[in-house]
């Protein structure tokens, strides 16, 4: 018999991957101007995942599928393109499972990103910053095609294990946390995995749940992690016909909302959370009653060196005048 106390296993995780998911819901208390009393808005704080974002769910599920199918096996290197959180998630899960990871990212990703992924032992490869995340995607594709046997490419934009992660975890968590009372689900689109998979689960429980996607209002935007669908390579996993609606949010509004969420709700989040809450409030203001759940994909500390926070105090004062 092991000398480990008998109940340790029930109180500990096997690897950090076992801690992915089960994130909390918190009510938006003050940022609800123009919202009827009968409408509640809850944010799901995905920053509580061990890698710090919602992308841990997709990364872990895609790698699990690879292991189950045998396409991810000893000797392979995990390769994907990412401008941020998926890279961190793959680097973390790869390290926990003992696989090397190579990530293609635009050269102008923030210094925090570069340091986090390299701290996890991943190798970054930089693509042309002017080509954005699509440029990284295409470069990654070329690298894969040149040496297909070397890599395991999860391909978050086209891998059904991405939305499935949310069908299996995010959706059921929200259903349980709201006791089945959710009426509207709001999530921003990066790959579309979160909104597709969670939306599918919620609709499987109650067809009436409205699923609303948030995107930048323009191709030229600064909302990190989000895709403007009309001008982008549309991810294979994104099925617009399954959505009830799609709302475009301006970069300035998303940034301002980030400042407000920090100062009024005590949550420092990233710009995609700001965008998502802008969209959720737009929906909420049209309702007499309802229960909205909005995804906050990550916390804001990994954006402190970016444009979002550069000179923000001056901008905030100008805006308030």
């Amino acid at each position: 018999m092991s000398s480990t106390p008998a109940n340790v296993a029930t109180h500990t995780a096997g690897t950090v991957c076992d801690l992915v998911g089960n994130t909390p819901l918190v009510e938006i208390q003050r940022l609800r101007e123009g919202v009827a009393d009968g409408v509640k808005i809850y944010a799901k704080l995905e920053g509580f995942n061990p890698g710090g974002s919602v992308k841990d769910r997709a990364a872990w599920n895609m790698l699990k599928h690879g292991l189950d199918e045998g396409s991810l096996a000893p000797g392979k290197t995990i390769l994907d393109s990412t401008s941020g959180n998926t890279g961190i998630a793959l680097a973390m899960v790869g390290a926990a499972l003992g696989f090397p990871v190579t990530l293609v990212m635009p050269a102008n990703v923030s210094i925090e990103r570069k340091r986090v992924v390299t701290a996890y032992g991943a190798t970054p490869v930089y693509s042309d910053p002017l080509e954005g995340s699509d440029g990284a995607l295409l470069m990654c594709r070329e690298m894969y095609e040149a040496e297909p046997d070397k890599w395991f490419k999860p391909d978050q934009y086209f891998n059904e294990a991405n939305p499935e992660a949310h069908f299996l975890t995010t959706g059921p968590e929200i259903w349980e946390q709201t006791d089945g009372a959710i009426t509207h689900f709001v999530a921003s689109i990066g790959t579309g995995g979160t909104v597709m998979g969670t939306g599918r689960y919620l609709k499987s429980q109650n067809k009436a749940v409205q699923v609303i996607a948030i995107e930048p209002d323009d191709a030229f935007h600064g909302i990190e992690g989000l895709k403007h669908m009309e001008s982008s390579i549309v991810p294979g996993i994104f099925k617009e016909q399954e959505l009830d609606s799609k709302i475009g949010v301006a970069t300035d509004d998303a940034y301002d909302m980030v400042y407000d969420v920090a100062a009024s709700e005590g949550m420092l989040v990233g710009q995609s959370s700001g965008a998502a809450l802008c969209g959720a409030l737009e929906v909420a203001r049209q309702l007499d009653e309802g229960l909205l759940v909005v995804i906050f994909p990550d916390f804001g500390d990994r954006y402190l060196s970016t444009n979002l926070w550069m000179g923000w105090k001056n901008r905030k004062q100008t805006r308030k005048q």
């Binding site: 401008s83 941020g84 990212m105 635009p106 050269a107 102008n108 990703v109 923030s110 210094i111 925090e112 990103r113 910053p129 002017l130 954005g132 995340s133 030229f220 935007h221 600064g222 909302i223 990190e224 954006y303 060196s305 970016t306 444009n307 979002l308 550069m310």
Partner: peptide, 29 residues
């Protein structure tokens, strides 16, 4: 921002890049 903003001087042969901050900001490319 770390030069002279809009007044930053240019000379023949310089290369100027306009980059949205989608992938974060950085002091140099």
């Amino acid at each position: 921002r770390f030069l002279d903003n809009l007044a930053s001087p240019l000379k023949d042969g310089d290369e100027v890049s306009i980059v949205p901050a989608i992938a974060g900001g950085t002091r140099s490319l």
